[in-house]
Design a binder for these strands. Sequence first.
DNA 1: GTGAAAGCGCTAACAT
DNA 2: ATGTTAGCGCTTTCAC
Lengths: 321, 321
Amino acid sequence: MATIKDVAKLAGVGISTASRVINKSGYVSESTKIKVQDAINKLGYVPNETARAFVTQDSKIVALFLPSIHHAFFSELAYYIEDALDKNGYKMLLCNSTGNIQKELSYISMLKQNKVSGIIGISYNEIESEIHNSMPIVLVDRHIGTIPYVSSDNYGGGKIAFQVLKDTGCQHLAYIGSYSNSVLTEVEKRQKGFEDAAKEDGMDYIIYTEEDPIKDQTAFLKRFLSQYKNVDGVFAENDLMALELFELAKEQNIKVPEELSIIGYDGIKVYEVLKSKLSSIRQPVEVMGRSLVELLIKRIKGSYVTPVIHPVEFVKGETTR
Amino acid sequence: MATIKDVAKLAGVGISTASRVINKSGYVSESTKIKVQDAINKLGYVPNETARAFVTQDSKIVALFLPSIHHAFFSELAYYIEDALDKNGYKMLLCNSTGNIQKELSYISMLKQNKVSGIIGISYNEIESEIHNSMPIVLVDRHIGTIPYVSSDNYGGGKIAFQVLKDTGCQHLAYIGSYSNSVLTEVEKRQKGFEDAAKEDGMDYIIYTEEDPIKDQTAFLKRFLSQYKNVDGVFAENDLMALELFELAKEQNIKVPEELSIIGYDGIKVYEVLKSKLSSIRQPVEVMGRSLVELLIKRIKGSYVTPVIHPVEFVKGETTR
DNA sequence: GTGAAAGCGCTAACAT
DNA sequence: ATGTTAGCGCTTTCAC
């Protein structure tokens, strides 16, 4: 493997001049620039990134920190984040924290040792204090202190869901989902938007929630169906929950959407093969991914950034009238 | 940030002794070991991994190279791989190659510059020659030259699929999927197993394939349904294809499984919420992930390894009788 | 504009 | 069993 020394020698210049050409930094005359470039080509020189990372104390690696990549929404988001990072010269390290606080802390320690450039994260724990001010970080769908974040318009999405259910003639509405006692999640704003819209409208509604994470979603949903037989319109926290409710309703011969309308949240593409069965509030996943990367890079460069909230849209499937 | 020098000074020992304690290498007396350990604790010392990577020319990072993490089977596999790597002290860099050969090549160059320890990969291209012998690598579901790989028993799975379809009374069978002209994919062995079983049995069958990647799967499947109306048993290349065929059949009022039985391949969990609708040949994803990591680490340590093929099982859903 | 040289923090000979 | 020291390849002052 050729080193910068070899390049300098072959080009007949000093190491720092070679470095300047390689990094396009500082002043180099056109003629020496060409000499160095020639040497680089001849030797097939490529910089040793571990040496660079060591010297600059910056690995040009961004960590994506999430509970599990094995989740439709996250894996779609991860795809776009990786793509955007790559286009900006960063690599992506993937960390499945499994929501376990011990594992999250040990990951953070590892990330510091490896001098990652920054973190894009979703955490269910209050570990942010460990990182903030010591590393650039941008959160997804979490609003903690002054840490910048990117989310979809969860509140607005909740309002839209209410409106759609009402406009399509539902009389007895319910929100189903989970709540968190520790971290204030953006997800809960979906509920808030739904509730506020219902209150403004003066319509009654039911809130059926369990503490996050819900251990047995199937049991949770079955209980809901048997307990609230008169509900004819449901807004579920996310598509996975909505989809399972849809399946359970079919099993119990409840006609969807005639007797029960269902709206999910996410609009994840994995289920496109199902011919868009589910009505849902769709998050602009790709845009969010790019936006996360953009914000993080600004933070890395030291700029101050403000949260970004992306608009959502209702996508009609077959679970609403 | 405390360095190893600080530790050595505080402990009153030489740098290399401190290094020995930190790395548990070489001989160190019990008493000095304790002194060093104390110093480490007092200073809150953690090794600078970029320096280590630089000196050893090994970043302890493994790259997971796949077409797209945004795919149910891959994201599940990635989850288990990351978990196993983490348990072995490795980090995981995620590279979405999008199957594009230019992007794959530029990733490989990047990985070399970053001194990754090894690669776990799925590639649709013949880039393996670029890596082989220059870096430890293990492939998923690809059999290229002498490169070690891990796969499920695709051939056996194909045989099982045939047997199930036949045993449940189907008369006119078909295999649907894709074929590749460049790389010999393990996936095609599913077809081979199916064909061989049919031939042994003496039963006629149809092979309906298109070159990979199939641009418009919906059109592809619709064409199949209209062209082969008498087929009553289908083995599809993967679950996504099987699932869409199922949906299209329903749309066209073809009764599944009465008039048409469908078996997929993968057994991915994302669709569990659908209440196991699809009959499928299930791959042991978790075991495969662990197995990939195990093989790669053996390769990194210089051992010779042989391919590992994991058994599959038929999981009955509602798309077979 | 260009080159010499220091030094990033660590590992691994090598000497003792 | 322990300490000294030479780099690893690069970036970055600092002189010229």
